[in-house]
Amino acid sequence: MKKLFIHHALFRLLSPLFSGTLVYLLILLINNNIGQVQESFLGQELYVCIGLAYVIQEYARLSLLVFERIGGSISFLAHLLLQIITSIGVCVLLVSLSMYLYFNYVLGYTPNARELLIFNSLFALITLIYVLLYKSHQFLYMVNTERINREVEAKKGIEADFAHFKKGINPRLLFESLEAILVIMKTEPEEAESLSDHFSAVYRYLLSKRVNELVPVSEEVEILKDHIKLFNHLPYRKVELRLADLKDSWTVPGSFLMLTEKIIRSTIPSESKRLKLNIDDKEDRIEFHYETEEVLNGGLDSSGLKDINRSYSFYSDRDIQLSEGVSYKTIKLPKLQLHESSHP
């Protein structure tokens, strides 16, 4: 919590001067001795009040620090009442002890009950103001922090919804596919029809599977074939997909498509050379293996897998791993089993 101004050195130095002077003037007013102000304003009693103000305000500040560390399971109101009662009680003891010492050893007589009541009331009021000032600041901090946390959570929810929306729509691929269809349909209508079939299949899958937590790998692979055929019509490196016999397992919807797109977009386009993408089945993972000829700016690294990794983290304790050699990269996706999903 931001440091309250009562803890600042300048306030601690100057505040008792004003509060002690105020207490002195109030005592004169209560005792009908206001005329003494003109006679001996800078008298001994004023210095005693200022000195006592220093003691009480430093004690009050210390009590705030002590009670700040005393939390427990008690409510805010109970904590406030306990702090007020304790702080004022100790303040009364300090003021009474100080007055007894001053009156006995300096003035030479014992203070009466009325004098103790006046001093204790005024300095107890100062302590009460300190406590209430601090607790009001603390309460406002709690309320504002709660509101900020709600705003942060709402922002995260909106960002997550937008990311999920973009994941399902993939506007970049959408516009590129539509542009390719517009170009091809003028010269090769049949090819444009084939392209539109792949396009519609991919987007039907993306939109229909948004509500599913997991899907079978076999289902994801089938739509991956349409996805790669769609990309092969675009001005990127042409992709040759080599699939192993993938055993029954589950995956996050669209993860194969997203990963393949990241691989394709991070590879230098070429009309003469194909990108050979191998998908192999291992004991506990599925591996995407390919030879790398990456673009100079925007190559695929671990940071580029954060969104996929985040999706997988809900269903597996294992992270998606990226390993690379001199001329190849391998991305390892953990296999997900049916019992790890709430998929119907």
Rank of each mutant, 00 (worst) to 15 (best):
L206H: 03
Y205N: 03
T260E: 06
W250K: 03
H233V: 04
E222T: 11
H233P: 04
E220C: 04
M258P: 00
E220F: 01
H227V: 09
E219D: 12
V221T: 08
Y205V: 02
S196K: 11
F199K: 09
Y203G: 00
D245Q: 13
Y236N: 12
P253N: 05
K225G: 06
R242S: 13
F231K: 05
R265M: 11
S266G: 10
I228C: 10
V211D: 13
E188I: 09
W250G: 00
Y236P: 10
V202K: 03
A201Y: 08
L259C: 03
Y203A: 01
H227A: 13
V252S: 01
K225S: 11
I263F: 10
R204G: 12
S194G: 11
I223V: 15
K247W: 03
L234I: 11
E219A: 14
L214P: 02
S218E: 15
P216E: 09
L206R: 12
S194V: 10
S266Y: 06
E188D: 15
K225H: 07
E188C: 03
D245E: 14
S194E: 13
P216C: 05
S208H: 12
E219C: 11
R242E: 05
H233A: 12
I268Y: 08
E220Y: 07
K229S: 14
K262Q: 14
Y203D: 05
P235G: 12
D226E: 09
N232S: 08
V215T: 08
R265T: 12
G254K: 02
R204P: 02
E219M: 10
V215S: 06
E219I: 13
P189G: 05
L224P: 00
A244Y: 10
F231H: 14
L241Q: 04
I228P: 07
S196D: 03
Y205W: 14
D197K: 08
E240L: 11
A244S: 15
T260W: 06
T187N: 08
H198K: 02
D197P: 01
N232M: 01
K238I: 04
K225Y: 10
L206T: 06
Y203I: 02
E213H: 07
E213S: 05
I228Q: 05
V239P: 04
A192D: 09
V215R: 01
E222R: 12
E193Y: 01
E188T: 07
L246T: 07
I228F: 01
F199E: 01
V211M: 06
T260Y: 00
S194R: 07
V239T: 11
F231M: 14
S249E: 10
V211G: 06
G254P: 02
V215A: 09
V211E: 13
I223C: 14
K262M: 09
E188H: 10
K225Q: 14
T267M: 10
R242G: 00
L257Q: 15
D226W: 06
S196R: 05
L207W: 04
W250V: 01
I223K: 09
K238E: 06
R210Q: 15
S255E: 05
K209Q: 15
S249P: 07
V202R: 04
R237T: 12
A201W: 05
N212F: 11
S266C: 11
N212T: 08
L246Y: 07
K247S: 15
